[in-house]
Simulated scan of single mutants.
Amino acid sequence: MELAHLAAFVAVAEHGGFSAAAEQLHLTQPAVSKRIAQLEASLDARLFDRLGRRVLPTEAGHLLLPRARQLLADAEHAQRALRELDLDIGGSLRLVCSHHIGLHRLPPVLRKFGERHPQVELELRFLDSEQAWQEVLHGRSELALSTLGPATPPLQATRLWHDPLCFVAAATHPLAQRKTLALTDLSTHPAVLPDPGTFTHRIVAEAFALRGLPLHLRMTTHYLETIKMLASVGLAWSVLPQTLLDRSLRVLPVRGVKLSRDLGLVAHTGRTPSRAARAFTQLLRHYAD
């Protein structure tokens, strides 16, 4: 039984005729007659007797009428509940985030989200960007905030922030004494960088590979804050986001090379976003570059 057919049946029963029912439903009389005929065919029962100009429910019609009214009321309540979903957002949201974004981009977003949607149970974990992508891919997290690499279905990446990268070293490092530098100069000194499997490491490595230059690594680590400390004590030069720079580091004037990365949101295209995820995504866009 279709709701449209039931609505036509109730209208005819309540108004005692097809013309009045058609007027109420904003349909033509033939359209109402067709719906009643289709309903009778589906139920294999005659629902109305036509007595001259009068239309009266049969015994089957009387039996169906209260149930049809209840079905239509239930459908209306369900539609209203769906329309009101976003008015009271609750549930849970599993979010995974890179350490850097969590420290430097996420705090104002989390603060505002908590104020707007206190009923949402937020499960937040911090992982490297590449691991974060795997969490979304395998359905263990609904959203990820990370450095963006090449995204292939079923993952979809949305850029939120442009993140310039700078060549840096301690003020006492030999490279910091130069007024101008090229990648050739950096290739003769060891570097400390994120692990080779990270998107950021690949950005730096590709810049050297394009110029046929070696990249000498003193060590690698997952954490940018640790890299910053190692570079600030003069152990090696490095590449860090502008948001991490302070007086402990000096930006190296490397000519002809500008490095940057994109930060953003990763979601699974095959997953229907929860109300909480939709609200969080909408809020993120207000804080994007």
Rank of each mutant, 00 (worst) to 15 (best):
I203M: 00
L122I: 15
V96C: 13
I227V: 07
G264D: 10
H189S: 03
W161H: 05
G52I: 14
P150R: 00
L284F: 14
T221M: 13
T198I: 05
H222Q: 09
L259S: 06
T28S: 15
S42P: 03
M1F: 01
L64E: 04
R125H: 03
L103N: 11
L51W: 00
L137G: 01
H15C: 02
K112R: 14
A279S: 12
S248N: 11
H100I: 07
A171S: 07
A11G: 04
P30E: 04
A132F: 05
L127F: 06
H26W: 08
R159V: 15
R50Q: 13
A170V: 02
R116A: 12
F126Q: 00
S248R: 12
D88L: 08
A209T: 11
R285F: 12
H162Q: 10
E23L: 06
K34Q: 12
A191E: 02
L95G: 14
G139I: 03
P253E: 08
G52S: 14
L71T: 13
P30N: 07
S260I: 07
Q70F: 00
L106V: 12
E76L: 01
F9I: 00
A132P: 06
R80N: 01
P273F: 10
R46H: 06
E115I: 01
D195M: 00
A176Y: 01
R247M: 15
E84N: 09
R69L: 09
R83D: 03
K179N: 07
L137A: 08
H173N: 02
L110M: 15
R178C: 08
G90T: 09
G16N: 09
A7N: 05
L127W: 00
Q29L: 03
L252E: 08
E121C: 10
L87R: 10
K112T: 13
P190C: 04
L210I: 07
A176E: 01
T180M: 02
L244E: 10
T281M: 15
T188A: 12
D74E: 11
D289G: 10
A11E: 01
S92A: 15
S19I: 05
W237Q: 05
P107H: 11
F280Q: 10
C166F: 06
A73Y: 03
E121F: 13
D44A: 12
